[in-house]
Design a protein around this nucleic acid. Structure first.
Lengths: 220, 220
DNA sequence: GACTCAATAAGGGGAAACCCTGAGTGAACG
DNA sequence: CGTTCACTCAGGGTTTCCCCTTATTGAGTC
């Protein structure tokens, strides 16, 4: 009834089924003012309809949620974005939040939780799934609120030197120390030194975990 | 009205939102006899309720759609599975179809198409998204129609024994031989044997390449 | 100039990975 | 009943990994 109290929400997701699910779960608690299944249409419609909250899929063709936030942000900074994704990878979360999303929830969320997340986002809160809250807040709160201050995103990767990251990538690809030494034209022992440093800094105990770590961050 | 003409459908997906979307899109055309959000519960309920069609998410924790098909198939071979996935990767399609799925559609499908896909699956047809039809049909038509003929898809994986694949998965996750031996309750040396066999058969030279190989095939 | 730090390198030692050969069991197939 | 094959295990060997300490160089920084 009271359209006034319902937040005006815009949906962006390339999967019609997901949109239908969201509609079904939310239609009683929010006003859905539009939908889009791709980036450019989303940007145009959001600018035109000025919703309170945009529920935004992270992974889409042509740039995904990131492109939408950037496209809209240039024209209207008042729209609040709540990212919705299947992924809980640090890279995804950090990238989208850094672009300006006010929250991030994963798609295994239940309907009522999603409603609350949207309401809180509309109210100005930052909403994150339990599991995500930790490292996101760590990265941002400790470095101030302003997006301009460029918080040291992914502090784990940041503590590595460029050379160490270089070695890390090769390790993760399955090269032996000997091969890496040859490729970088340094001594075998130097490679060992770098790897040891990386393992110590990341608190991992062997290369296999390193491979998985690198894969998660999409360093390959 | 006529419950008789409506196929009895069971939903398996770990995302509540997706299930809600499917329900919203299908509820007028099919009878949804149950849902599950994880593998073991799905298997039990499907065996108990004997739906005509199971709409099955491919990617889930604890083995995904594959595990469900195998778990149910051992008890009841009459249930028809229609795989539903965000992925259109050949590996996924081949693995799931090979396990016994009668069809495979991607999640960007629209509601009406999904209804038709389910109806056709219930009727005994094999249903595939346009883009997928090509290589799936290639693989199957050339080797006969009977599921018994078990076309040798993915020949590289086929040459591995079940035990070897089991070990391979653990290797790819970064476990040491010792840990794997403990977990499978076999000797350290036996694990070595299996790994050696896998490396030889796949023509790889170490575990790191193995990790990447497994990641590409989505064996994790 | 003193200090810090990334990058390079080496020695030495223990653990794990990898390879090859051989060999025993049980299940399946003819 | 013999053959094949998956699975199991062992011995013995080489290589690679991982850790620890120590050390030199060069580029910044204060």
């Amino acid at each position: 009834m009271s359209t006034l109290s319902k937040p005006r929400v815009f949906l962006v997701d390339d999967h019609a089924l997901i949109r239908a699910g969201i509609r079904a779960e939310l239609s009683h608690d929010v006003e859905i003012v539009g939908e889009a299944d791709e980036v450019t249409a989303a940007i145009e419609m959001i600018i035109e309809r000025t919703p309170d909250v945009v529920l935004l899929d992270v992974h889409m063709p042509d740039g995904g949620g990131l492109a939408v936030i950037q496209g809209v942000g240039a024209h209207d900074a008042s729209v609040k974005f709540l990212a919705l994704s299947v992924s809980d990878a640090a890279e995804d979360v950090i990238a989208i939040v850094r672009a300006g999303a006010r929250g991030y929830v994963t798609k295994n969320i239940e309907g009522p939780e999603l409603v609350e997340a949207i309401l809180r986002t509309a109210a100005g809160d930052a909403v994150f799934s339990r599991r995500l809250a930790g490292f996101v807040l760590d990265a941002f709160i400790t470095s101030g609120d302003q997006p301009a201050s460029r918080p040291s995103l992914d502090p784990e990767l940041d503590q590595l030197t460029t050379r160490e990251i270089e070695v890390l990538r090769l390790i993760a690809r399955g090269y032996t120390y000997k091969e890496i030494a040859l490729q970088l034209d340094i001594a075998n022992k130097t490679v060992e030194s770098h790897v040891s440093a990386v393992l110590r800094k990341l608190q991992l105990s062997n290369r296999y975990q390193l491979t998985n770590w690198a894969t998660e961050r999409r360093l390959l």
